[in-house]
Design a protein around this nucleic acid. Structure first.
Lengths: 196, 196
DNA sequence: CATCAAAACTAATAAGCGTTAGTTTTGCTT
DNA sequence: AAGCAAAACTAACGCTTATTAGTTTTGATG
């Protein structure tokens, strides 16, 4: 059978990661078999092991790739000289774009990380905890600066991160609303509230 | 071995449903085996089949029990004579309580419904679509009545439902904040916004 | 065209899965 | 105590799983 195409999407490992993300999103990691993944790629299952070490490794690649991208963006946000409200708006918009542009990977990282095995599970959870902690710090600064209401910052982060994660379900309405309108409405709701 | 205790939690089917929800939440439906569930109950796997028809049926029981409770509450909210902001506050607080009081079941219904088989998958999705539609209608009324900002109501529902779903992750901080404070902060953030 | 590694293939393994069949135990009712 | 249904048990089935071993094909290099 044909070799795995490595042209468009980088290395063959990348192809497996991407097709894996698509499959795991649709059926869940545990319900997806290597045979089905191989079938989607156009190859027999054992051939995959020329490029990856195990099924788990595919999930690890997905989760840590996504985590890395979020961490990198947060680095930049922390460095910039904007006020807290602008930083938050930046973060919200970035999460929305990640959710829409790398849907499969972000979805899988959000929902299937529990299937990671130690030490990867621990590593991932630490990264997540760290990310949320830095997010909380930004909000705390905003409260002290008088930019934000006095709300438990953990609750605020929970709401913001959960709200953007909810875009997992947005696919269906995709055509009925423009992405920029969606973004603006989310920013408005999360920062200014729903009440008039 | 001892018979399944049917005293505290109603029928034996109920025990299986509850222990199933706890296991499925921890490990995911597909990664949970009937042998492990039986072990948690203190029984051999085949014994479970005296009380339930299949593994899938356990998931079905969990999902439709939860869906029923949410539908019932929405019935009551629609009937009451409160203004829209009060209705929304009621809905938000109910979702929070469900999330905290029936954590395992709600968590599983939220995250594992994809593993349902037709016709149950279709039925569940229809109920969900219906629920969201009625939620959207409430928000639309609020916009027309001048109570709410002119925001795409689907986006608003997405944000609210996703935010309360995010309480899946709240367990860790459980002891650091009172539930009433959590509730009030969430209502404030979602209705009045984060910005001062 | 010969070479040689990369990457495909086929075949097979051991483990785990949901579930069924058939049997024994349990514990209430008479 | 006897009887009987409910619910436990043991044993096993057929199937799917991720993965390994060993072999053949592919396709770029000299």
């Amino acid at each position: 059978m044909a070799k795995i195409k490595a042209v468009k999407n980088g290395t063959k490992k990348d192809v497996i990661t991407q097709k894996g993300a698509a499959l795991f999103r649709k059926k869940g990691f545990a319900s997806s078999s290597m045979r089905e993944l191989a079938d989607n790629i156009g190859v027999e299952a054992p051939s995959l092991y020329n490029h990856i070490g195990s099924k788990s490794e595919i999930l690890e690649n997905i989760c840590f790739k996504v985590a890395g991208e979020f961490n990198k963006h947060l680095d930049e946000v922390e460095k910039d000289n904007e006020n807290v409200v602008s930083k938050l708006e930046n973060l919200i918009r970035f999460h929305i774009h990640m959710m829409l542009d790398e849907f499969d990977e972000v979805y899988v990282a959000n929902r299937e990380w529990k299937q990671l095995k130690d030490p990867f599970l621990n590593d991932f959870l630490n990264q997540r905890k760290n990310y949320e902690g830095r997010f909380v710090n930004i909000i705390n600064k905003g409260i002290k600066a008088g930019e934000l209401k006095k709300i438990n910052p953990h609750v605020a982060v929970l709401i913001i991160l959960s709200a953007v994660r909810g875009l997992e379900f947005w696919q269906r309405h995709k055509k009925n609303i423009h992405i920029t309108d969606l973004e603006n409405d989310m920013v408005t709701h999360l920062l200014n509230g729903l009440k008039k």
